[in-house]
């Protein structure tokens, strides 16, 4: 059959979620942010909660999140997304609230807000993109930057003696009783994207069932910051980032399920 005979509405099996606005992403070509942003929209569409959800966009590469979705979004100051989410959730407990944050936003300037929101077991979903760098500001060191990794503020590689160690924050957050679900995923293959989608679904269902805080971490690439093509970046990520930030569930339904003391 000719392609033109196949391309008919009744044969459509996949397309961008209708909850995505017709706005081109500001992300660099091949950036994982785009996939995560779209996957969240797919989950919200399939759960039919677009009229009851409020997203919180951070400062960082995803700072324009509020312009990408066909549902309500509130822009938070850098690092404050979890506090903004708390402020909303406490006056609108029946609404779904999720934050979308990068590693600088969540694990550097926003550490206290993140830690205490999780410690209160705030009934929200935290989507945490870990690409080991500050992308929007042009590639500086982040808390999750790996030892020896080069960035514009550690051009000779991260020296842990003077610049601190890569901060693996989600296992720390998993220790907090208020946190019910902590899982780590990636979007460099379709299989992993589908697993992420299932994890996001679980996270939003946890929120619906008031089980406490759900954290979905996504280890992702930063092509421009790492100075690689998207394909190379994904390969480098698997080789290096996954060693320090292994994928998989860390806490499910309030129970730790990953041996987090395994040497990294």
């Amino acid at each position: 059959m000719e392609a033109k005979d196949i391309i008919k509405p009744e044969n459509l099996v996949y397309q961008k979620s209708r909850l995505m606005r017709e706005k081109t992403f500001n992300f660099c070509p091949g950036c994982g942010h785009g996939v995560v942003v779209r996957t969240i929209a797919e989950v919200i569409e399939e759960m039919g909660i677009e009229h009851d959800v409020i997203g919180i966009s951070p400062v960082g590469c995803s700072v324009f999140l509020y312009d990408f979705y066909n549902f309500d979004v509130v822009e938070a100051a850098h690092g404050r997304a979890c506090a903004v989410a708390t402020g909303i959730k406490r006056v609108q407990p029946s609404k779904y609230v999720f934050t979308y944050q990068g590693d600088g936003d969540l694990a550097a300037i926003g550490t206290a807000e993140t830690m205490h929101t999780c410690n209160r077991g705030e009934n929200i979903v935290i989507v945490f993109i870990n690409n080991g760098i500050y992308g929007m500001t042009g590639g500086q060191m982040a808390p999750t930057t790996l030892e020896g990794m080069k960035t514009t503020t550690c051009p000779r590689g991260r020296d842990v003696k003077t610049m601190g160690y890569p901060l693996n924050i989600t296992p720390l957050l998993a220790q907090l009783p208020g946190v019910c679900y902590v899982t780590r995923h990636s979007v460099h293959t379709p299989g992993n994207v589908r697993k992420l989608k299932k994890a996001l679904r679980t996270a939003f269902e946890n929120q619906r069932d008031k089980k406490g805080t759900s954290i979905v971490e996504v280890v992702s690439n930063c092509n421009s910051g790492w100075g690689m093509t998207p394909k190379q970046a994904n390969e480098w990520m698997v080789e290096n980032m996954f060693k320090k930030y292994p994928l998989g569930d860390m806490k499910v339904d309030g129970k730790i399920v990953m041996d987090m003391n395994a040497p990294r």
């Binding site: 059959m1 392609a3 459509l12 099996v13 996949y14 397309q15 961008k16 979620s17 995505m20 293959t189």
Partner: peptide, 21 residues
């Protein structure tokens, strides 16, 4: 093409739509 949708899923900008018969 067998319409498996992998390309559509992986596309960061969601520019690919997939059809299958």
């Amino acid at each position: 093409c067998i319409g498996c949708t992998n390309c559509g899923v992986i596309c960061p900008d969601g520019v690919i739509s997939v059809y299958r018969v």
